[in-house]
Lab assay of single mutants.
Amino acid sequence: MAAGGDHGSPDSYRSPLASRYASPEMCFVFSDRYKFRTWRQLWLWLAEAEQTLGLPITDEQIQEMKSNLENIDFKMAAEEEKRLRHDVMAHVHTFGHCCPKAAGIIHLGATSCYVGDNTDLIILRNALDLLLPKLARVISRLADFAKERASLPTLGFTHFQPAQLTTVGKRCCLWIQDLCMDLQNLKRVRDDLRFRGVKGTTGTQASFLQLFEGDDHKVEQLDKMVTEKAGFKRAFIITGQTYTRKVDIEVLSVLASLGASVHKICTDIRLLANLKEMEEPFEKQQIGSSAMPYKRNPMRSERCCSLARHLMTLVMDPLQTASVQWFERTLDDSANRRICLAEAFLTADTILNTLQNISEGLVVYPKVIERRIRQELPFMATENIIMAMVKAGGSRQDCHEKIRVLSQQAASVVKQEGGDNDLIERIQVDAYFSPIHSQLDHLLDPSSFTGRASQQVQRFLEEEVYPLLKPYESVMKVKAELCL
């Protein structure tokens, strides 16, 4: 049975990233139509530049190519590739079939990587351009969430054990800070992308030097003109047959890092959902379990974690691919890159769409948070109580021993009897502590235990987050809708 299948058929496997999760716009960027249309555009740009620099290419040939950029006979191309065992030459023939007058000058002087690699770089750039505003929107939604809850005390956790208090907004800023680093890295790697350009079979530009009869300047002009037509500021000066596969490492490393950030955020949300302090959106008709109707599973956060793990592992592909590119190139890269580049971007696209949807509907339960604080705060307040007693004339050592005994009794009630923490009640009825009984409410005010959390939130948002989001103001209103 021949390899390949009808990918629109229910009898043929289709990647869930495309069929179930990723956005239509990201799927289109990695589609065959987008790819092969870009090949034709690159052939047109090459012909236009070659004509401008004096090669015998007519206006009629150029116009014929322009008129057929979208006229792609995919069936013919597939048949040609089956016959020739070469995808680029299959599309040269297919393009030439609908451009008979231009057929002889299509791909003039070029090698397969002229269309293959340059198209990949265009796709990487455009895919990054799709991700950047999506990530900015996630940051914006979380920034709104953090600002609104900047002063809401909550129990902090280290080692997932109760620690000092923080605020809900401050905790959210930990998430935002990681995503801001990801946004900066995505922008950097996007701006650092260079075009492969017009380089020939081993990167020496020998074929173009021959076409222009040894004119170095025209060869350099050709490279520059096509690079500018493709919208790049610069091209690699040095290439082998391909652009260095280190570029793929750079791009997928940034995406993998984004995956790590999203995994951490969504894990926190899942843990908070278990504590009943916070939940992701839950639709009115949504079913959490087929057997347990009360369940409210954090399905979206779980999906993000599941896909983020996949995204983090994909960076190993370009690392290994770059390491086995012998001399000017081997074909070890080809099949692998067809999979890992598309999957990385479709996965990143999915987790950003999902995280935006989550961040637009996060639900906080202040009463649950308050109750958990009441359970733990008495123990945390013991040092403040000791200091207040010393100020009232008591002995630190005597007070410490009193607190120690009462704390152990209260802990026994919590752990052995399943009761509430009654340390404060014990202190309130103990005559030894009568000098500070009137101060206990103040000493137990949760806001006095959150330090500068709310001020940190305000400063972080104003100095770091809002300036970073400013270039994306025009796209901030787009909502994230999930079908599944």
Rank of each mutant, 00 (worst) to 15 (best):
D87A: 03
R459P: 07
E328P: 00
G203A: 02
R85W: 10
K246C: 06
C113W: 00
K147Y: 13
M312F: 00
C98H: 08
H91F: 06
L272S: 10
L377W: 02
D216W: 15
A431R: 10
A273N: 11
T111V: 00
L55F: 04
F345L: 12
L209C: 06
D333V: 01
F460H: 09
K391S: 11
D216H: 15
E481L: 12
A411G: 12
I424E: 09
K415G: 07
F282G: 14
E462I: 15
D422M: 15
Y114S: 07
R171V: 01
I57C: 06
V315C: 05
A3M: 05
A344L: 00
V478G: 13
A18V: 14
E50A: 08
I386G: 06
I249R: 01
S151Y: 10
Q408I: 15
A381T: 15
A344T: 04
R149A: 07
D349M: 07
S253T: 11
Q286N: 07
T119H: 15
A90Q: 04
E473L: 11
S31P: 03
D420P: 09
V465E: 03
D32F: 07
C98F: 06
H310D: 03
E228P: 08
T321E: 01
I106R: 01
I385R: 02
Q41Y: 11
K75W: 15
K66T: 12
V198K: 00
M380T: 01
E464N: 12
Q439N: 15
C266K: 05
A381W: 03
D248G: 03
Q41D: 06
M387W: 07
K147D: 07
G169P: 04
I369H: 02
A344N: 00
E463P: 02
A392C: 05
S253C: 13
G109H: 04
D216F: 04
T94R: 07
E25S: 14
E463N: 15
I176P: 02
E473M: 09
S438D: 01
R337K: 09
A163H: 00
L174N: 15
T38Y: 05
L44W: 06
Q416E: 13
Q184K: 14
F95H: 03
A49E: 06
V429W: 03
Q161K: 05
A102Q: 06
Q210K: 14
V168D: 02
F345Q: 03
K470I: 07
T154W: 13
L440R: 01
L272D: 14
G288Q: 05
D268R: 00
M312C: 06
L46R: 02
E25P: 07
C266S: 08
N384V: 09
E464Q: 13
V390Y: 11
A453L: 01
C304G: 11
D333I: 00
F208I: 07
A206S: 01
E464T: 14
L17C: 13
G116R: 05
E48I: 14
M65C: 02
K415F: 06
I72H: 13
F327L: 08
L132Y: 11
M389C: 10
R372M: 11
M299H: 08
E302C: 06
W175Q: 00
H93A: 06
A335K: 00
L132F: 14
M225L: 11
T202P: 03
V198W: 05
R188Q: 11
L307P: 00
C305K: 00
E343C: 08
D441S: 02
S438H: 15
F157C: 09
S438Q: 14
G231V: 04
Y432A: 13
W43K: 04
T350V: 13
T52M: 08
K391L: 06
E473F: 08
L355E: 01
Q325A: 08
L55A: 02
L255H: 13
L468A: 15
F208W: 04
Q356K: 07
D73V: 03
V315N: 07
P298L: 04
P153K: 12
P100W: 10
F236C: 13
K402C: 04
Q416S: 14
L444V: 13
T321Y: 10
N185Y: 14
K187L: 13
V198Q: 10
R396T: 01
N185W: 14
I249W: 01
W326Y: 14
V168N: 03
V363C: 03
S15H: 15
Q286Y: 00
A103G: 12
L444W: 13
G116M: 05
Y13D: 08
A256E: 05
L482N: 08
Q241V: 00
K284G: 09
F95R: 01
I62T: 05
C483S: 13
M26Y: 02
L252R: 03
E370V: 03
G418Q: 00
M278W: 07
M278C: 11
T204K: 01
M181Q: 11
V475T: 13
T313A: 13
H97R: 11
